[in-house]
């Protein structure tokens, strides 16, 4: 292997690694705040890429159906809860985020084919982001107090529901969205595609935004507080339901952006999300599903490892990446005593 191939592989690894970093950070965030291992994180990625591709190919937006149906179920659950508690409080907010917003976005999506590219991207992100809290409301909020194991099983079930709906609504064909940026430049006498640079820069920027959000805003601190002490957070008025929905909205938004970033460089099928999410997960467990920097570095390492193993042993590339889970878990279980997160 000469230097130019090495440089090319590093580039490739950094670009995919940058997307895995985003997914890993989301997994850590969702797990610490809600104790849910967000298996369907990848579906946010694939649905975003498929929806944007649908706009480009002038198809009907399949995601609108998921949004409307799941939103309807979420609102029905809110209505039932309000009826049981004999109060109308909170219904207006629920009607907005579970009915009005999905309906408005779906209507916009019907006209989405005619929109300029930037508006299509925004609309895609908005639709996927809206889906996040709806899924939390429907699948997790009723069982938020359950143990992490039950939550994991619910997450797996939700993953299969979403993948199944994805096959039905988007079809089995893979898509590749149009390149966002064409052309390349030279860095250290090596050609670097603008697309690669953009992915890395966007990932870096998003991570900085997240860092600022969690470090400096009251809402971000409230989510961290929920992760540190759930009961303490509830006693200062941070409702677990609210924290869960905000976290899912964030995870969905980042997933959507990841999908838009990765869409032009990887072919995305209805079920591609799982593999992408799983690679983020391998990165996240390096940080024990708890530490952001370790998770980010781990995810970057996964991207690089994948790039190099696809050069040397391309048939085994997934095998090599996922086999990594075993030694990492062994190392973590020996190096760190597991903390039962409910009894700190």
């Amino acid at each position: 292997m000469d230097l130019s191939i090495f440089g090319f592989l590093v580039q490739d690894g950094l670009a995919t690694g940058a997307v895995y970093v985003l997914l890993a950070v989301c997994l850590v965030m969702v797990f610490t705040v809600t104790r849910i291992v967000l298996v369907p994180q990848g579906e946010f990625v694939s649905f975003a890429a498929l929806t944007l591709a649908g706009f480009e190919q002038r198809q009907r937006p399949g995601l609108a159906w998921i949004l409307l149906i799941a939103g309807g179920i979420a609102f029905a659950m809110e209505l039932y809860g309000a009826w049981r508690r004999r109060t109308r409080r909170g219904l207006a907010v629920a009607a907005f985020s579970f009915l009005a917003l999905p309906a408005a976005l779906s209507a916009a999506a019907l006209a989405g084919n005619a929109l300029p590219w930037a508006a299509q991207v925004l609309l895609t992100c908005a639709m996927v982001t809206t889906l996040g809290p709806i899924l939390y409301r429907v699948a997790f909020q009723p069982m938020a107090m359950a143990s992490p194991l039950y939550l994991l099983i619910a997450a797996i079930a939700l993953h299969f529901v979403l993948v199944g709906s994805g096959l039905y609504l988007f079809g089995p064909e893979g898509v590749r969205t149009a390149a966002i940026l064409d052309g390349s430049t030279e860095i250290l006498a090596m050609p670097v595609a603008f697309q690669t640079l953009m992915i890395v820069a966007a990932s870096l920027a998003l991570n900085l935004v997240l860092f600022a959000f969690f470090g400096f805003t009251l809402l971000g601190k409230a989510l961290r507080a929920t992760a540190v002490n759930r009961r303490g957070a509830q006693l200062v008025g941070i409702s677990p339901d609210y924290a869960g929905q905000v976290t899912f909205a964030l995870a969905a938004a980042i997933g959507a952006l990841s999908g838009i970033l990765i869409g032009p460089v990887t072919t995305i099928y209805y079920d591609s999300g799982f593999i992408l999410g799983l690679k983020g997960f391998v990165g996240a467990i390096i940080g024990g599903l708890a530490a952001y920097p370790a998770a980010a570095l781990g995810a970057l390492a996964v991207g690089l490892l994948e790039a190099f193993s696809s050069f040397w042993a391309s048939a085994y590339k997934e095998v090599i990446v996922f086999t990594l889970i075993v030694p990492i878990l062994l190392w973590r279980s020996y190096a760190h005593l597991t903390v039962d997160d409910d009894h700190e």
Partner: peptide, 25 residues
């Protein structure tokens, strides 16, 4: 049948035995 958050907004506040502080913050 008010939720915990609504009770807090109404002016009720509990300091539990375990304190439940945000230790790492």
């Amino acid at each position: 049948a008010l939720s915990v958050e609504e009770r807090i907004r109404a002016g009720l506040c509990l300091v539990p035995e375990s304190r439940d502080l945000f230790g790492t913050m």
